[in-house]
């Protein structure tokens, strides 16, 4: 048991390999070489490349955002133009409708006036005819009454004086 333990210790050397100073120059030499190599790879190739890619992507994104903003602006403008055109068209339509309505109204008014005038003329004419007829009728009634009265007086045995009978009938009809 004891020999085994010492075997191990002898094989492992003096304790921790980390404190074996004889290997230090070797490790330091290779480490410095490694660090220089990594530094050169990074600073010459990798970092500029990644930096460029990131900058390019940033630029593209900024450009795209600007473009999108512009397109959005254009869309807003287009919508405004469309709305303006729509409003104009609507106003035009209203104007035309109002004009048509006014024209029709004027025509209508003229026609109504004309019709009214015709109706008034016709009414006056008719009234005159009626008045004539009425006057004619009155005259006829008077004639009939005079004749009838003269006949009646004759029938009753009187002697009818046409003049007196006419005067009496006129007085009666007027009365």
């Amino acid at each position: 048991m004891a020999t085994e333990a010492t075997d191990v210790v002898e094989k492992a050397g003096p304790g921790m390999p980390q404190l074996d100073f004889s290997t230090f120059p070797n490790q330091i030499f290779w480490l410095v070489l490694t660090l220089i190599a990594i530094y050169l790879i990074l600073s010459r190739v990798a970092l500029p490349r990644i930096g460029a890619v990131l900058a390019e992507r940033q630029g593209t994104i900024t450009n795209d955002i600007a473009k999108a903003e512009e397109l959005k602006q254009q869309a807003v403008e287009a919508e405004e133009a469309y709305n303006r055109a729509l409003a104009e068209a609507r106003a035009e339509a209203q104007r035309i409708a109002a004009e048509a309505r006014a024209e029709i109204q004027a025509d209508l008014d003229a026609a109504i006036a004309k019709a009214d005038a015709e109706i008034a003329a016709k009414a006056a004419e008719s009234e005159k005819a009626i008045a004539d007829i009425r006057a004619g009728a009155l005259e006829s009634v008077r004639d009939v009454a005079k004749d009838t009265a003269a006949e009646i007086v004759a029938a009753l045995g009187g002697k009818a004086d046409a003049k007196t009978v006419a005067a009496a009938v006129d007085a009666r009809v007027k009365g």
Binding site: E4, V8, K11, A12, G15, M16, P17, Q18, T23, Q27
Partner: peptide, 11 residues
Amino acid sequence: LAFDPMKQFEV
């Protein structure tokens, strides 16, 4: 036990 945890660090 036949193992040495520090052996892995040998140069």
